[in-house]
């Protein structure tokens, strides 16, 4: 079903439909993540992917035309490149350990320590929160700074243009 949606997004020329379809895609992705027991990520996907980004894309659509411009060249070469890269990536996954293999490196490195000691060391039962805010505190600080920088960038770009427009009137 998600594959059908992706093809529909690629084929669809009306950008409004594309935005709606990507919102549906995000909700399906969130359901997949719930099925994988990744509730925190599912919540983020549902609120950010399906909620906020849909609203922002609709806001952007309000400013531009709702129809995609006709492509200026034949899509044969890009298609070949993306199929080639996709095939290479699929070939790469053959070397990965099997899905949910308990002896995979990701499950034997730091994950056992987090799962066994997080409650005792941090007193926080949700291991995801403990890892995010405590064990990987630097990463989350960087992440927050990225969000902040994005906001500052948008303010800097859009506000200046508005002021210039106001001065010209």
């Amino acid at each position: 079903m998600m594959a059908v949606l992706v093809v529909a997004v690629a084929v669809q020329r009306n950008l409004f439909s594309v935005v709606v379809l990507t919102g549906i895609y995000s909700f399906l992705m969130a359901s997949v993540l719930v099925a994988l027991d990744a509730v925190d990520v599912a919540m983020t996907e549902a609120s950010v992917g399906a909620g906020i980004s849909t609203v922002l894309l609709l806001g952007a659509l309000y400013l531009v035309r709702a129809d995609e411009a006709k492509p200026m060249h034949r899509p044969l070469l890009p298609l070949l490149v993306s199929v080639g890269v996709g095939a290479a990536l699929v070939y790469g996954t053959l070397g990965l350990p099997a899905f949910s293999d308990p002896s995979a490196p990701i499950h034997t490195h730091v994950a056992p320590r987090y799962l066994n000691d997080a409650l005792r060391e941090t007193g926080v039962p949700n291991v995801v929160t403990a890892v995010l805010a405590s064990y990987r505190g630097y990463d989350t600080l960087g992440e927050t700074t990225v969000v902040f920088t994005a906001g500052v960038g948008v303010v800097a770009l859009l506000r200046r243009r508005r002021r210039r427009g106001g001065g010209g009137e």
Partner: peptide, 12 residues
């Protein structure tokens, strides 16, 4: 801290 969620989701 107990269930799913946290600062990022709440902020959104």
């Amino acid at each position: 801290e107990l269930g799913p969620g946290g600062g990022f989701q709440a902020g959104v």
